[in-house]
Amino acid sequence: MVLDVRALTMDFGGLRAVDHVDLQISQGEIVALIGPNGAGKTTFFNCVTGMYTPTTGTVTIARPGSEPHNITRMRPHLITAQGLARTFQNIRLFPEMTVLENVMIGRDCRLSAGIVGAILRNRKTLEEEEQVVLDSFRMLEIVGIGKWANETAKNLPYGAQRRLEIARALATEPFLLLLDEPAAGMNPQETRDLVALIRRLRFDHHLSIFLIEHDMSLVMTLSERIYVMDYGKLIAVGEPAEVRRDPAVIKAYLGEDVSA
C-alpha cells in the first residue's frame, strides 16, 4: 500500500468539504477520484499533500520497500520530499522562468548546494548544477517537450504547459503522482497522448498514479479503480464497470429527478 487515508475530514468553517473519506492505493495502481463539481476532490488532494491541514483523520504513505510513514499535518515541502508529487487543476507554473528552470525547481528537494557554495562556486556545487540541468532535461524528454527547454514557460501551448507540470512533478522523484484534472482543456489528440504518457509512467517508471478527472472516457479506460465523491462523502468505490452501474453514482451525476 503506497497511500492509506483514514477518515479524512476537512471543515471550512461550517462547510464540511471532505467527510470521513477512506482511501487506499496499492503499489503500481492507477486510481481515479471522480465526482461532480464542488464534491471536495481538490480539497482531498490538498489535505493529502499538506497544502491544507485536515480537521481529523490520518494520511499514511509508504515508499515501496520501506516502512509506512504518517504524514498527517506535515508541511507540504516535506511531504514532497517523502515522495508525493502533484500537479494543479489550474496550471501553476512559474510563468516567467524557462521550461527547464521550472523542472529544476522540482528537482530542488534532491539538491544539497547552499549559499556558500553558490558564492564560492566550488566543484561540488558546479557538478550538482550540471547534473540538475541534465536530470531536468531528461524529465522534459520523458513528457516529450524537450525541444522547448529554453522557452519561457508562459509561452508554451496549453497542452505542453500541462505536460510541463507533470515533468516538474516527476523531477521530485515521487513514487506516487497526484494529477488534478490533467486532461482539462485538452483536445482529443492531446488527451490520447496524455493517456499514453500516464500508462508509460505507470509501466516503465513504476509510479502509482492517483488522478482527479472529469473526462469519463479517460477515467474509464485508464483507471483500475475509481473512488466517487459527492458533497464530501465517498459514495462508491470499485472497478470502472462496477462504478458505472452504481445507482448512487448515476444519481449523483444525473441528479435526483432522473433517478427517481
Binding site: 499533500t49 520530499a81 501553476r92 512559474f94 525547481i105 530542488d108 528537494c109 516538474r168
Partner: peptide
C-alpha cells in the same frame, strides 16, 4: 512567481 507551487515542489 508562485509560492504555493514552489512549496508543493518541495522548496
Amino acid at each position: 512567481e508562485d509560492f504555493i507551487a514552489c512549496q508543493a515542489m518541495g522548496v
